[in-house]
Each structure stands twice: as structure tokens, then as C-alpha cells.
Design a protein around this nucleic acid. Structure first.
Lengths: 168, 168
DNA sequence: TCAGGCATGTCAAAGTCCTGACATAAAAAT
DNA sequence: ATTTTTATGTCAGGACTTTGACATGCCTGA
């Protein structure tokens, strides 16, 4: 018997009279069972947990993501980072500026090639990132432990395929 | 051989010199391979596709979600809907007000029990929802087709477990 | 060569959402 | 019965993000 996957916090004033028939896959009329809804739910939970952890270190989620990406790929430009963190260039710009004012990243005032100004972590940036990573990785660990190890690889590829299918 | 899962739009100015060693699971240093990142990527892609489709019908994503939930569970209150759509009560309130001004939902001016005012779809609300559903379900279909049917159930439960693990 | 296309960085305005706070009403605890 | 706790709706303020627009610098093709 499949256990109830519906969150039970929407049962307050609503009439839950009709019980869901099994309706195995394809198009269950219960929206909370759709892939999109579950995806959003998981992402919202992750966002909340990340926010909570990062706030103690004075960082926002996009700021942390930028730090992590710059540690892996030094020299990324604002546009690169914006695409990679799924925000607009404009938002990425304010993120970068905040990071720069905080002294965590540095980028040349003038671009030698094109207009892109490659950003890099400062000493403080590396230190701040290292300090945050333990806390963030603990959150990720909670996620990893929530799913059977055998299915991890499949989950990653499925998520990747979903993203690819929706990005055209 | 595992195909490259890294998006290649971050290879502009960054130095991609060091090639990632396989490092099967657990803690790959490439952040774009972490569960959290893939999750965010998939959700961002979904959000974008939904936005694009819903704009043609004059609805935002939270508004559509509210309509869908009200169709399934008439009588949900603002707080109920806010929780179910993963926004704050305040944001949920403006969503509901917009829907009410558009004549898609109706709720009593006075609460008979407590302060909660149960909301319901109007005739126009049902019609608008039906008009949008075909377009939205087409998007969902692209997602569903992107993953092997055998893994669908596992994916849903995995996403559910992830959300549950992060919500405490 | 040079004209168009394309990518990037940035500005201004608007929109969206959240945090913090308060008042009210039901439920629970004392 | 009174107090405390919890839940809801709402207001004001601010933080963040997006849309739209413009200027600049490569790059490709005629």
C-alpha cells in the first residue's frame, strides 16, 4: 500500500471528502502528486534550510552559490555566474557588488578582453566559503541520507533530464 | 561512460583546465553535480517554462497553483493556500486579492468560524483554469517523457523524502 | 572593410516576496 | 473561569528580483 504522500497541512477548512483513487501514474487529479509540485516542494524546503543556515554567516543563497562556483571556476564573469545561479544578469550584478563590498571577491576595474570582468575569490572569500561549507554540506547530507544510495545516480540523471527537457 | 552532466554555458572565461575525476558519489567537488544544484536547476527550468506558458493567459505561477488547489479542495483559507503554494501568508493574500479582483475566486466578506475565510472558484475561475490546464499539462508532459516510466514512482517518493527530511 | 548580429555590463523603474509587527479569534492549559 | 498558546488576517517597510532599455565591445559574413 502506498503511504500518503499528500502533506496534511491543507486539510483545515478544505473538504477532503472524496478519497483519492489509486490512479497509478500519468495524470492523477491531485496536483500535489504531480512531478512539478513535488519538485517545487523539495526545492522550497531546500531553499528554506539553506536560508536558515546561511543567514548565520551573513550570506544569501545566490551569494553562497557564487562563491562556490568561483572557487571551482576562477575567472567567471557576471553573465556566466548569472546563468549558473539561475538569475538575471542584473541580479547577478548586485550579488557580485555585495560580495565585492564585503571583500570576498575581486575583479579588475577594466576588462582586457571584451567587457567581461573575470571575478576571483579573495583570501577572505576562500575563508568565508570554507567556514560556510561545513554547515551547508550538513544540509545536503540530510538530503542524501533521505534517499536510498542505490537510487542516487538515477535521481541525478532524472533531474538533469527534466531540466534539459524544459530548457528546450 | 557517464555523459557530461555539467551545463556548458559556464565555460566562457573560466579555466576548465582540471578535468573532474569520476568520484562516483558522496561529495564531488563540482557543485553542479550536487543534488541541491540539480534540484534548483530543474525547478528553475520548470518555473521558466510555466511562466512563459501562463503569461499568455494572464496568470502567475502562484495564481495558477492557487486555482488548481481550490479546484481540488474548495474552501481552503488564505493560510492554507499560502502553505500549499510555499509562500508567506502575506504573499498569499495579494495572490488571493488579485484573483478576487479578476473575478476568478470568491470568498465571504465575513468569517463564520474563526477568522479564516474559505475561498472558492467562481464560474469564470473554473473556465480560466480549464483553459490553462491544457497548456500547463503539456509542459508537465515534457517532464514526464524525459524520464523512464519505470523510475517515475521512485522519483516521486525520493522528492517527497527529500522535502520531508529538510522540513524537519 | 564594414554592417549586422550577438554578448556583456549597467542603469532605472516596477514588481514580487519576505521580515517584522499588530490585532483578533479559537483552542489548550492552568 | 482565566490565562496561555496557537492560528489567522492584515499593515508597513525593506530586501531582492525582474523587465525594459541603452551603450559598449567582439565576431561573422557579405
Amino acid at each position: 500500500m502506498p503511504e500518503a504522500r499528500s502533506p496534511r497541512w491543507l486539510c483545515q477548512n478544505a473538504d477532503m471528502t472524496e478519497s483519492k483513487p489509486p490512479e497509478p501514474h500519468d495524470h492523477p487529479e491531485d496536483v500535489t502528486q504531480h512531478v512539478g509540485y513535488l519538485l517545487k516542494r523539495a526545492q522550497a524546503a531546500l531553499r528554506g534550510a539553506m536560508d536558515k543556515v546561511l543567514r548565520e554567516h551573513g550570506l544569501t543563497v545566490p551569494q553562497y552559490a557564487t562563491l562556490e562556483l568561483l572557487a571551482l571556476h576562477p575567472g567567471m564573469s557576471n553573465a556566466d555566474l548569472a546563468r549558473a545561479t539561475f538569475v538575471t544578469r542584473q541580479s547577478g550584478n548586485v550579488v557580485l557588488r555585495g560580495l565585492q563590498e564585503a571583500g570576498l571577491i575581486a575583479r579588475p576595474d577594466t576588462a582586457d578582453h571584451g567587457r567581461a570582468r573575470p571575478a576571483r575569490l579573495t583570501e577572505d572569500g576562500h575563508a568565508r566559503l570554507a567556514a560556510v561549507q561545513t554547515a551547508v554540506y550538513a544540509v545536503e547530507q540530510r538530503m542524501v541520507e533521505a534517499i536510498p544510495p542505490k537510487r542516487m545516480a538515477a535521481l541525478l540523471t532524472d533531474l538533469d533530464h527534466i531540466a534539459a527537457a524544459l530548457e528546450e
